[in-house]
Structures are given as C-alpha cells and as structure tokens.
Design a protein around this nucleic acid. Structure first.
Lengths: 354, 354
DNA sequence: CTGTTAGCGCCTTCAA
DNA sequence: TTGAAGGCGCTAACAG
C-alpha cells in the first residue's frame, strides 16, 4: 500500500553488489572489509536513489538502537534540562541520539518511563532519580541494559553515579555566611530520603561545628524540596519571634519558594523590614534578581553530562564486545563497587546591599 | 547469543493458541475479534512468562511507532519545555509517547533532528520552528508524515499551526502601558523574519496608533530575540539622551537581557536613577522578581499543547484510515488551507513601585 | 473467532 | 573482499 520504500536491495542493485556488501558499507560501527572502490560505489548509489536505513529493521536484528534515554523528574526544570542538553550534545557527537522522558516526579512514573525506554531497546539509560528507591533500576542494570544515575543517589542499588560534591558545596556555602559574620543560620528544606539533601545538610552541620556554633532543633527547617515547601518554611520563619540572620536553601525550588514568600509581604517591591540573607544551592539565570540571595552553589552540569555520557558509553561498549557478555556482566556488577564520581562545585557571590 | 527473548510464539504456546491470536489480543488498536475467554488466557500467559512486545519488530511490520516527536529550539528553555511537558501528558493519555529533540536554535539542526525522527518512524512531528523557513518540513508533511507547528509560523509552508494571538496580546500589553499614562514607549527586540516578532510588533503599532501617538524610528529597537540582544538594546537606551518611559520586550529572553543590563548598573541592588517600566511577552516563575517588569503576557501553553496533540493525532488517524491514503493526503494538502489556531493570552500585572 | 503463512528490511554466519 | 541465504519478532491476509 502506498509507496514502497527504498531498501538495501535497491541500493545493491543500483551499485551492482550484494545486499551484504551494502550492509557492511553502511555499518555504523565501520566493520570494514569493504574495498574503497565498492564503498564509494555503494555510497553513490545510496545517495542517488535516496536510501534511508530502516532503523526498526536494523534494531530487530541487532537488538540495539544507538540511542540512550534519559528520564528526568520533570522537563520544565532548568537544572535537569541543562543536563539533558549537555548530554545530548556529547551523545550526538558520538553518533548516538537521546530520548528524553519525564518521570513526572514519581517513582511510579519513573518505572513506566524506564520500561518504555527498555521496550524501545535504548542501549543505555541515564536516570535523574525521582525518588529514593530504585529496585526497578537495579534489575534493568543487572538484567543487561546499562544505567547511570545523575545528580542523586538511590537506595538499594549498585549503579554508577555522577554527583556534585554536595557536602563540600554546602560546607563552603555555609562558611561564606560565617565569614560574613552571620551566626544564627538556619538550613531550610530537604527530605532525609534524598541523598542530595542529606549530603548538603551534613556539609552545613560540619561548617557550623567547625565554627564552634551549637546546633539545635531550630537550626533546621527540614522537609520538602519543592517551591511550596520553601514558601511554607519561610512563612513560619517570618512569624517566629527571633528570625535567623541567614538561611541556607537546599535547592533552587525551595529557594524560589522562600523568595516568593518574602516578596508576598509587599504590595509593591519595597523591601523594608526583616530581610534575611539567603545562600542557596543551584544557580540559574534568575538568581541574580532574587532579592535575598547572596550566595549560590553552581553545579557543573556540563561536566556532569559529559561524565555521564562517558560512563554509559563505556558500559555499552563493554557489553557489546563481551560477546556473550551476560555472565560476565553479572560478575562485574556483582563484584565491582559502583563508581561514584563527585564533581566540584563553585560558590557564586551575588551582590546585594541590604 | 545470550538469553533468548520471550516472543509471541512463547505466549502462543503457553496459552495454547496461535501467534495470530496473541497478536490480535495484544493489538494496541484493539482490533477485536478475540473471544473474552482467550483474551484472558493470552494475557495470563503473557504476564506469566514475562512477555514484552518487541517494538522494533512491530514497527518494521506496521511502519508506525505510536510515537510523536517534538523538536524544540532548545531544551533549557522554560517556555518550550512547558509546552513539551503538556504535550507529553496529553500524548501518553492516548497511548502515545513523546520523543524530545533539540534543534539547537538552527534550521540546520532542525533539519537533522526532523530527519532523525522520521528515520525512527515517528507517526507525527510537532515542531517549534527554529527559523523562518521550512521547506524541509513541507516535504515531510506532504511526503506522508504529519507535522504541526507550534508557537511560530514559517515561510513557504502550508502546515497547521497552533499559535498565541500575538497581535492582540501586544495590543493589550501596550494599552495597559498607555492607560498608566506612559507615552514614550519603545518596542525592543524581534527579528522581522520571525512571525511572532512581526505580529507582536504589529500589535504594538496598532495600540499606539489607536492612542493617537506618532511612531517614528526611535519607537523601535529591533533585532534579535536572545538575551544578549536585550542587553545590547538596553545598553543603547541607557546611553541615549532622552530614554523612554516604558519598554515593550518582544519575548522572555530579550526581557531578561534588558533587566540584566539594568541590574549591571549597580554594584548592589540599589535601583536609584533611571528605571523604565517594562511590559514583556512571556511569564515565568521569575518575572515577579524582575525589577522593571510591570506587565507580562502569559501564553496558554497547556492549551497549545492540547491543541497540538489533537491536531497531530487527527492527522495520524486520517492517514491510517485512508488505506492508500497517499493521493488523498496529497489532494488534501494541496487544496486545504492550513488550519491556524490562535489561542488567547492573558495580561498579568506585576506589582512594583518605582 | 482462530490458525497458517508470508514477508517487513536488515544483518551475519558461512562459503567462495 | 564479496555473495547467498536464513532468520530477528511481529502482523495481516487468507482460509477455515
């Protein structure tokens, strides 16, 4: 029905060679074993008749797609999409393409997306975990398709991960506030179930202790990683008797929520009255405009992406070469410590004069 | 090599039916023609042995993937990803999945991405055009795979498009400024090659004329749609003898650049001195914090996404049903006006008191 | 309602 | 270095 598509047979005919030769010539892995002369003939013929490889047919045969998937908690999030963009650039430089999917911030969604990607036979999956558990990832990984975690760790898995050095970041961030003379500093937001939150909290504690400051329950307003959480926390802080001088926000969203609550006090944008100083994780194009923001931790998304791609491609290659690589992979996965890479972060100062 | 996968044959064997029956049972289009009893048997068998459809094989046969692709100029852009997110939700509700690709802001990249999606046999493509020309889109569209444009129009195509009512938006936006008593208003940014820019400019003109205000060359600072462009334009404005009272920014990025330039005047965030009022296209989580921003035009990304999905799915369905739908499609594409949908926008007021 | 069968387009031994 | 041929797993006639 309709127009028949141009196949490898047509190319073979046009070039006066066999389909096998055409296949070898067009092999993306460049298997070689084709004379230069025929190569050229085949390419010319293919171009001449407008041949396009049928990827479905190729995948059916090879069980691979030269594709890696990424599942992010949400698409409309600059940090995640920065990452995705970096990854896609690296990948396409290596002849791979990226499939982007959203887990919609739920482990359930993550499961579904990951399954969908697996069904599509992606060669590997980069996951920015939505939750704190990840059995569904482990099973994939040991079951054959390489997985690498980015940004967050996950309980109960032994999977490679590329992370920021959250603890050191939080330590430096807090240290800056201390240098500036602030003492009553409160850490805001963060679920204990989330590795980044735990690590950042630990960094905060370490810095405070190093400065000889006693921490108590009031030093933390834990719970939540979303905008609303930051808003709610700031609300409580504003209503408390003796508000802190400075605050450390666990991430971009909580930070935004806090600033939003601060802004909500005013009909206009006047900012008289209590105005704390905020030091926050995550830099964006807009943090310079947030009135309370004095310091941010900028994560190196470009390097994270690069590293993630390196790792996943490595695994994919190993898998391919391994021939019957299954047992071998099992072995490796069983005995190798998962590689966890920590990337350094940068503290940025945002000028402000309140 | 390695473990053999579970196929439809295994399911057939386990359920004691033929592969054809299994295939029919599992048909996502629910072709029917299977008794309830066998249905259940097949499902049970499939689940029992952990069967997963091999999508590559299915696609090879059906030439369809239940997938639609979207190509956006960039991933790290809230407006585009808002759209993508909405589209993906609609789509997955209909049993389709979304493939996200980035054209990296170039027509060249757009061509490549679109070709890649076509090679992957996506059933349809949603394009947020990167440039002003789109022959590569037309050829796809008439060649068989449905395309729908979102956000922007493109020259030399007859393709359905879902757009915001840019002209009306710009008119209302400008009218607000006029109501507030501003007279010396300048329109900033916008390439004449880009449909949104042209339409917004037209709306601005219309509103100004309606208010009896004479426009001259100084009423526009055209050129560019990026952050740097906004920055540069604002730079010139600041250095000009008699700066305007209010500005209309053509989009989010130009707006951001303008605010950035304004901010750059100060070591801290003090904002004394000249401070224009800005009315800008595009609302985001952060616009409330931009100091010069008084009004924004919020586009209805949710509806745009919904509409885009409706349209593309419609086309896909028509194509399928059409049997030998090729000529018919040709006919339609040739004779039908492309459907252009304009969605209403909302003007938001951001309080500020400068 | 169900089964038989012939490919979809490609890759990959195996032999030449 | 090249060619011939047998599937990869699934669907869609066509029979029954």
């Amino acid at each position: 029905m309709g127009e028949r598509s141009v196949t490898i047979r047509d190319v073979a005919a046009a070039a006066g060679v066999s389909t096998a030769t055409v296949s070898r010539t067009l092999d993306p892995d460049g298997s070689g074993g084709v004379s230069e002369k025929t190569r050229l003939r085949v390419f010319a013929a293919a171009a001449g008749i407008g041949y396009r490889t049928n990827l479905a047919a190729r995948s059916l045969k090879t069980r691979s797609t030269r594709t890696v998937g990424i599942v992010a908690p949400e698409l409309a999030n600059n940090f995640f999409m920065d990452l995705a963009e970096g990854i896609e650039k690296e990948l396409s430089a290596k002849g791979y393409t990226l499939l982007v999917a959203s887990s919609d911030n739920s482990v359930e969604g993550e499961k579904k997306r990951v399954a969908m990607l697996a069904d599509r036979m992606v060669d590997g999956i980069v996951v920015i975990p939505a939750g704190s558990r990840g059995e569904h990832l482990s099973s994939l990984h040991t079951g054959g398709i390489p997985v690498v975690l980015v940004d967050r760790l996950v309980e109960g898995t032994r999977i490679d991960a590329i992370l920021s050095d959250n603890e050191a970041g939080a330590r430096s961030l807090t240290a800056k506030l201390l240098e500036d003379g602030f003492r009553r500093i409160v850490f805001v937001g963060g679920d204990k179930a989330v590795s980044t939150a735990r690590e950042r909290m630990a960094g905060f504690k370490a810095a405070m202790k190093a400065a000889g400051i006693r921490l108590n329950r009031d030093s933390f307003r834990l719970g939540g990683m979303e905008v609303e959480d930051g808003f709610a926390h700031m609300d409580v802080i504003l209503k408390s008797g003796r508000p802190p001088e400075a605050l450390v926000a666990v991430n971009l969203l909580v930070h935004l929520g806090m600033e939003r609550r601060l802004l909500a006090r005013f009909p206009g944008r006047r900012t008289e009255g209590y105005m704390p100083v905020i030091a926050a994780f995550d830099e964006s194009d807009y943090t310079p405009f947030l009135p309370a923001c004095r310091y941010t931790v900028a994560q190196d998304t470009a390097s994270m992406g690069k590293e993630a791609v390196r790792r996943i491609l490595e695994r994919i290659a190993r898998r391919k070469k391994g021939g019957n690589g299954f047992q071998e992979e099992q072995f490796q996965t069983g005995n190798t410590e998962p590689q966890i890479i920590r990337l350094p972060v940068t503290i940025l100062k945002h000028f402000q004069d309140r």
